[in-house]
Nucleic acid binder design. Structure first.
Length: 486
RNA sequence: GGUUCGUUAGCCAAGUGGUUAGGCACCGGUCUGCAAAACCGUUUACGGCGGUUCGAAUCCGCCACGAACCUCCA
């Protein structure tokens, strides 16, 4: 079965064929670390984590680069905006790199909690100033950039004469040129569509480096071109990021790389859709975002309860990555319950006893799940298949069906592969399993309750159950015993 | 205004020419001392109007509504 991925270039699903199998190069735009990560940041991280895991499963040797933007990302437009990191540093009265380190640590912690695997390389823009200067020089040499008062700008109109600026986003550059030509009065840029490769620093600008043109800093779009080619080569397989980065960021990246290298650098462009809240994009500028930490603690007016990192992950995976997914506390609660049931089924599967014959059909599950993954990472379909199979597990668990050893092992293997290895869902860290004495104490209490029940001493029986429930335990009676979890 | 994409039941969300998607909730039943859990069954759909077709939620056209991007955003 062949993996098909939706390529934004061309806007259709294409069979994925790496340039240099078994090696795959993948670059994903990471965060600008000037604030806490929110639900929107979890989407690309999880989406491309799934792709990373699946490509690895298919036998590819993946080099996954996810950058950290810690310089050059300006607020407002490229002419007048302040660097986001520098602004935060000024406001908080700390070093810019303290801002970066603080939020990067928190980002890493959140990613770990979401069970997002770390990328192979996580380069910082500020650590690649030399590469970015060299990249700018290449673009100047190729004739697609000009210097103006110590800054360097990409000449979009000239580039568009021989190439296609707008190839990714579908933008019509001629119209943009028409509508903006008159508005440009005294700007140092020739056209307002031109974008900065290097910016001369104003006197109060803290983050600055030497360059052939001025003491300044690199433009935002440049880091991805420079670091992508440095670690993955002048041509590599996959570039991912949020849909909101398609224009101008990725469009500019394509222009820069094509201008400097004279070739198509990225083969497959992939974009995850947005998370919305009341139908609107969740984002910093709208101020309607909920940070990941707030999800994990439940400390936000829109949240009715805390949601575990795995619930957030499952919630995101229940929608296809190219669809918007609308946040609501109600939707997350549904995911929370669904996930519990799925993980319960997974736990029960481990306890099933094999019979001589099978009375349930489980074959084909692996193929169906793989087919869904191969169809542009259709995780909601994978999850639907896993839920289907769970009915069989529960029937067997209740003794209403039999399963042979071969089928049981296959089912265990498939569940392990898709739930744990590929979807990256893990059982929540529980006290159980770590502390034997503690578990035995609870078992003892519940055994006493069993005795009380046999003696029809409902007062004692209910007292034990109710008080344990009040402590946060969940007690379930089964046919010939009990189960509990916290 | 331009570009791109949506609109599927109470909620979330797949599917994209013919066959029950799935989850959550609801309802009925089995089980239970009572619950919970589990299992079985069941209800509510494809924005509107045309067209193509033996057949359209799916393809085409028009309309309505909504979103993202065109400033920074994952």
């Amino acid at each position: 079965m062949k993996l098909k991925l939706y390529n934004t270039l061309g806007r259709k699903k294409e069979i994925f064929e790496p340039l240099h199998a078994p090696n795959v190069g993948m670059y994903v735009c990471g965060p600008t670390v000037y604030g806490d990560g929110h639900l929107g940041h979890a989407r690309p991280a999880i989406t491309f984590d799934i792709l990373f895991r699946f490509l690895t499963h298919l036998g590819y040797k993946v080099r996954y680069v996810r950058n950290i933007t810690d310089v050059g990302h300006l607020e407002n437009d490229a002419d007048s905006g302040e660097d986001k990191i520098a602004k935060k540093a000024r406001v908080d009265q700390v070093e810019p790199m303290e801002v970066v380190q603080h939020y990067l640590n928190r980002y890493h912690k959140a990613m770990e909690e979401l069970n997002v695997l770390p990328p192979s390389i996580e380069p910082h823009a500020s650590g690649h100033i030399i590469e970015q200067i060299e990249f700018t020089e290449k673009i100047i040499q190729a004739g697609f950039a000009y210097e103006s008062e110590g800054s360097v700008y990409f000449d979009v109109e000239k580039y568009n004469n021989s190439h296609h600026y707008g190839i990714l986003s579908g933008r019509n550059i001629d119209e943009m040129l028409e509508t903006t030509r008159e508005l440009d009065g005294q700007s140092e840029k020739r056209r307002s569509v031109d974008f900065a490769l290097w910016k001369k620093a104003s006197p109060e600008h803290i983050m600055r480096w030497n360059s052939p043109w001025s003491e300044g800093f690199p433009g935002w779009h440049l880091e991805c071109s420079a670091m992508g080619t440095k670690y993955l080569g002048e041509e590599f397989d996959i570039h991912g990021g949020g849909m909101d980065l398609m224009f101008p960021h990725h469009e500019c990246e394509i222009a820069q790389s094509t201008a400097a290298l004279g070739k198509k650098t990225v083969q497959y462009w992939m974009h995850n859709n947005m998370i919305t809240i009341n139908g609107q994009k969740m984002g910093k500028s709208l101020g309607n975002f909920i940070t990941l930490e707030e999800f994990f603690t439940g400390n936000h007016p829109l949240l009715t309860q805390a949601f575990s990192p795995m619930t957030v992950r499952f919630f995101i995976l229940q929608a296809h990555y190219r669809s918007t997914v609308d946040f609501s506390s109600e939707a997350l609660q549904a995911s929370d319950k669904g996930l519990s049931r799925l993980m319960e089924g997974y736990a029960r599967l481990q306890k099933l006893k094999a019979s001589d014959t099978s009375s349930i059909e489980t074959s084909g599950l692996r193929a169906k799940c793989e087919e869904a993954m191969c169809d542009d990472l259709n995780t909601p379909i994978v999850i639907a298949h896993l839920f289907d199979a769970m009915k069989a597990i529960n029937l067997a668990y209740d003794g209403k069906a039999n399963i042979s050893e071969i089928d049981l092992n296959e089912l265990k293997s498939v569940y392990q592969l898709f739930i744990v290895d590929l979807l990256g869902l893990k059982t929540e860290n529980q006290a159980s399993g770590t502390n034997e004495a503690y578990k035995k104490a609870i078992d003892l209490l519940l055994n006493m309750r069993m005795e009380a029940k046999q003696n029809k001493d409902w007062v004692t029986s209910d007292k034990i159950r109710n008080e344990l429930t009040a402590f946060g335990f969940e007690i379930k009676d089964s046919k010939d015993g009990f189960e509990w979890k916290i």
